[in-house]
Design a protein around this nucleic acid. Sequence first.
RNA 1: GGCGACGUAGCCAAGGGGUCAAAGGCGGAGGUCUGCAAAAUCUCUAUUCGAGGGUUCAAAUCCCUCCGUCGCCUCCA
Length: 464
Amino acid sequence: MEIFLTNTLTKKKERFKPLNPDRVGIYTCGLTVYNYAHIGNLRAYVFSDILKRMFLYNDYAVKHVMNITDVGHLTSDDDEGEDKLEAGARREGKSVWEIVDFYTDAFLKDMEALNIIRPDIVCRATEHIDDMIEMISRIEANGYTYIAGGNVYFDTSKIDDYGKLSGLKRNEESARSRVEADPYKKNPFDFVLWFTRYKYESHAMQWDSPWGRGFPGWHIECSAMSSKYLGERFDIHTGGIDHVPIHHTNEIAQSEAAFGHDWVNYWLHNEFLIIGNNEKMSKSLGNFIRLQSLVDQGYNPLDYRYYLLGAHYRKQLAFSIEAMDAARNAMKRVRAKINEMKANEPGKFDSTAFEKMNNDFRNAVNDDLNTPKALAVLWKVLDSDTLSNETKLSLTKEFDRVLGLDLLAEEPQEIPREVITMAEERLEARRARNWKKADTLREKIAEQGYEIMDKKDGYEIRRS
RNA sequence: GGCGACGUAGCCAAGGGGUCAAAGGCGGAGGUCUGCAAAAUCUCUAUUCGAGGGUUCAAAUCCCUCCGUCGCCUCCA
């Protein structure tokens, strides 16, 4: 079965060819843990999860690595810049290490709530300082660095194809906004591999290195850790589209400088989630919505996942509560249909129909993760009146391996005793054709947050 | 200033030269069911794809112009 993915490196949808047959290595740029993840951040991880699940569904063995950026990085490049983690620590009166642990934990919990399969390896930058130092040494030995003002810089002028990922042109216009940044840089695009010159005396996170006590530049962690776990060549690197021009561009430059050969075959980037009034959701703008905020508003985290799957990962998506409502209602109906299928006669399993529908689904997800189309196939199955329940259930289960919406989950509903009592009372009233009393009881049950649906000679209650 | 993306029904959103008189979901309208509801179910809900040109036997899909929206170029998913 062929798989097509849009590769940022070539800007084309390409047929995926793994480095090793039936195996794929994926590296995902994780979160900088100085604050909670917002729902925009989370889009990136739902995306990489779908990617991984798609490969698993196609019978690949997947090794998925994700980093946690827990080394502080600067909020801006000028002298006002301050370290994000230090800022977070000061804000909350905690140590940077406490901050890091707290938000890492919160992040992993959000991922779990979204039914994201935990990456095989979740690696923290602070636990791989030695690997970074070793890699910087390699880059240095290969002649791609210089030291200025106490910092080790990567010399981008030594790379012919620097910026190949973003189609960057190294002219003055492109560099315009960076010129004033750092007087020690030889070229505007150069970046720091190792800092010993601090902006803040109090910088809490520091380590010894051949270049002096300090801390690593941002980009090196991903190069060092991905290669450590996936090898010096690997298949796929994912991340948000914002990483294309700087972070991933620099990762490529330093990695290829260190290894002396091409590094990653496929670069996949997800587009942003945009907040209502056409603004990027960002931590620094302070306009972020957490997954927990949605839960507080009565949405299930998987409603949000469904919402995301309704749009292609490479398209900007404008968040709105209306769209969340649509997703929640859709999920509710899907669940209701599945419960009904489970409750009714299974019927005969139709392997021909199964193969046909499964193929449609596979074609959708294998085509650059077309989840909107995949969901359309799901609905076609659910609404089919030719497929048996057994076939539908099997298909749903199969689809959910990729969708990850936990569609087959049993939701044991505990109905409070008093609600059941009222329902029984109402049943009696209805038998006695006392409609007034029956209606009053229905209202009372609704007030308790349950809805009652009449059946032939009984009722069904569920949480509304 | 440089780079990139997008504009499809009330809303969200696939499609990306003919099989499209354009998937799917949400919402809405009507019918069936019901004591009435709810749930379920059926039917309907874009002769048209931002606007205007062009290429073609054929365009939502390719090209040009314009209008509008958004992202990146500072840390960011």
